[in-house]
Design a protein around this nucleic acid. Structure first.
Lengths: 147, 147
DNA sequence: GCATATAGTCAAGCTGCTTGACCATCTTGG
DNA sequence: CCAAGATGGTCAAGCAGCTTGACTATATGC
């Protein structure tokens, strides 16, 4: 594979990821929730059992102060709440509210809707194959913005 | 395809894109250039014939002021220079310097190196297929951060 | 040739992140 | 058991990269 092809692959990957993210977010907003794309990854970590701010920070690859600000915001908007941690009096467990769960379901619907346009182009089998291959090469580290 | 699978596809796409971007950037830095990931997309638009600040802004999906700041930075660091536009006295043509070209080649090498680890996992054919499929679903709009 | 559109810049402000300092609580070794 | 260090969380200040708004210089169209 030539060097320039590798860069083209990277560009296509970024473009597809950015497009999908945008459309999922638009779909979530269209369903009546106000959300930022980064929230999706926070929600994924909070579901199903909640998480501490520090755990969330590790998952998102940011400082705990930044994670705490993000929690402030989703709490203020009613998507989650802070509870005392059952086993550690220092920590606080952040859990999704019913509204938070509804937003999560909306994100899943919006994602399915966005992916459907890909199925129209590539067919169901190829999209599945795409997902399977991405799963094999995607790292398990913190979720970070693409740039 | 179930809704939750669509979200998993989005997550895998983001993770792969973020990982690749990170590794390309690391590779560029290791080759002795100081660069930010967003620069790659600016460089791609500047090569081969240069571009105006406004064209660059459209390509990157930001305001022309933001694009101008980015140009300030890459000019200051010697990767590009501003020239009078040959056909429009209002405009200035931003073109890569030799150092800018060297940085671009370094990015291509780093991308090839990063993709090579994927080839090890998936095989050459599958990576090619991945690229081809992403090319078919990637939009042609402005390049925007994944979130 | 004048009115309007466009390329670019300067300035100010905002947002989301960082680093640094700090307190409360947990854990561990003597 | 308890002192010392590690860890969870917050407050405060600062910074980077973007935005909006205002402006100048040049181009374009009637």
């Amino acid at each position: 594979m030539q060097n320039s092809e590798a860069l083209a692959l990277a560009a296509a990957l970024l473009a597809a990821a950015g497009d999908l993210t945008q459309r999922i977010n638009d779909g979530v907003v269209a369903r009546g929730f106000e959300a930022r794309p980064a929230w999706g990854f926070a929600f994924a970590r909070l579901a199903p059992d909640g998480a501490t701010v520090t755990e969330l920070a590790g998952h998102l690859g940011v400082t705990k102060q930044a994670a705490s600000q993000l929690v402030d915001e989703i709490v203020r908007k009613g998507y989650a709440e802070r509870r005392p941690h059952p086993e550690d009096a220092r920590a606080r467990l952040v859990v999704l509210t019913e509204r938070g769960w509804a937003c999560t379901r909306a994100a899943e619907e919006a994602a399915a809707e966005a992916v459907r346009t890909w199925v129209d182009v590539l067919g169901e089998g190829e999209v599945r194959a795409l997902r399977e291959r991405l799963g094999r090469i995607a790292p398990n580290g913190p979720i970070k913005p693409a740039w």
